[in-house]
């Protein structure tokens, strides 16, 4: 008996020392990398520090949700880029969720054609790299749109051409007025518009991730016990009502955790914008600012911090939502 405690103590002790050593080794590695980087940067004469964020940017960004000119400081350019990233991410989450929900429910349809087409959508879009899909929309599909002289008028107020999708002006000046986009010398002017780069990313990312969401939705609904559907029907609810009132809330429990993962993947995939010309954070910061400011370490650190920050925030929020809808006692 005492021998047993002895071994346990020795083992515990050795575990303690092992961890000490490991900690030391890790620390040593971090110090080593830090020192090497420092000496490399010194050797190269590269300046360091975050003061560049307050310098004048001197470049223009085509889409900015907040006021921005070439005279604005670089941190404003960063804010513009972050907002552009988030705008794209929110649009993608919305469209992909709608698509995923529709197709996921379509998979369960009793109509053979609907079920098969839903499956075809899933298999088609899931098995093609998302970058290729984005390129297809950007370089092939959107390029086929007419030039601005012969734009497509979806309505008088919504104009589509190879320069983007133009929305009407909404003015709140004296009273409230909506006026259609106006044709200028080179393009439609004024009002808000979505650039083709945005459209390509939006469509590409949504279709790709929508396929994953549809699969999650399908298996979520299938995880709802058969008795629940029958019970709903027995209560005299219409199938649509059973779906909405009975099955959906239960399916949500199975859907939410994997859905979080897909949302996160989609958010991360917005960085593919750097491959076409949408000014989100990777494109503006790693592309333009890095070359202007010559501070690779700082620029990368800001970019990584942004992605890590948003990811942890989303994980935390979805975790809380998940906790709220989880059955007590489960």
């Amino acid at each position: 008996m005492s021998g047993d405690t002895l071994t346990r103590r020795v083992r515990k002790n050795s575990a303690f020392w092992l961890q000490c050593l490991l900690g030391l080794a890790l620390l040593a590695l971090v110090v080593l990398v830090f020192r090497t980087t420092q000496s490399n940067l010194e050797l190269l004469g590269v300046q360091s520090g975050f003061d560049f964020l307050w310098k004048k940017a001197g470049f223009s960004i085509s889409q900015h949700l907040i006021p921005y000119t070439e005279d604005s400081p670089i941190w404003t350019a960063l804010a513009v880029a972050i907002l552009n990233t988030l705008l794209l991410a929110v649009f993608c989450v919305l469209l992909a969720s709608i698509l995923g929900l529709a197709v996921g429910i379509g998979r369960l349809s009793s109509n053979w054609l609907v079920a098969r087409l839903s499956l075809a959508y899933l298999e088609l879009f899931r098995n093609i790299p998302v970058l290729l899909q984005i390129f297809f929309w950007y370089y092939v599909a959107l390029r086929a749109l007419p030039s601005f002289e012969s734009s497509i008028f979806i309505t008088d107020y919504l104009v589509l051409n190879n320069r983007g999708l133009y929305f009407p002006f909404i003015e709140f000046g004296n009273g409230f007025s909506i006026s259609p986009p106006v044709m200028g010398r080179f393009a439609y002017e004024g009002g808000f518009y979505l650039m083709p780069e945005f459209l390509a990313l939006w469509i590409g990312l949504s279709l790709y991730n929508g396929s994953y969401i549809s699969e999650i939705v399908r298996s979520g609904f299938q995880s709802v016990a058969r008795g629940q559907w029958e019970a709903g029907a027995a209560l005299g609810l219409k199938p649509a009502a059973v779906l909405r009132r009975v099955a959906f809330p239960q399916a949500l429990r199975a859907i939410l955790p994997p859905l979080t993962t897909v949302y996160m993947n989609m958010f991360k995939a917005t960085s593919l914008a750097a491959a076409i010309a949408y000014p989100e954070i990777v494109s503006v910061f790693v592309g333009t600012v890095n070359n202007l400011a010559g501070r690779p370490v700082e620029v990368m650190a800001v970019t990584l911090a942004f992605y890590a920050g948003v990811s942890f925030l989303v994980a935390w929020l979805m975790g809380r939502w998940n906790k709220r809808i989880t059955l007590r006692g489960q």
Partner: peptide, 25 residues
């Protein structure tokens, strides 16, 4: 958990651009 939050493209840029700075000459 940290790397799971980082997009592949960003990590590619980080490694392509910065790895040589981390390593001895």
């Amino acid at each position: 958990e940290f790397w799971r939050a980082v997009p592949v493209l960003v990590l590619l840029f980080v490694v392509i651009i910065m790895l040589p700075l981390f390593l001895p000459a």
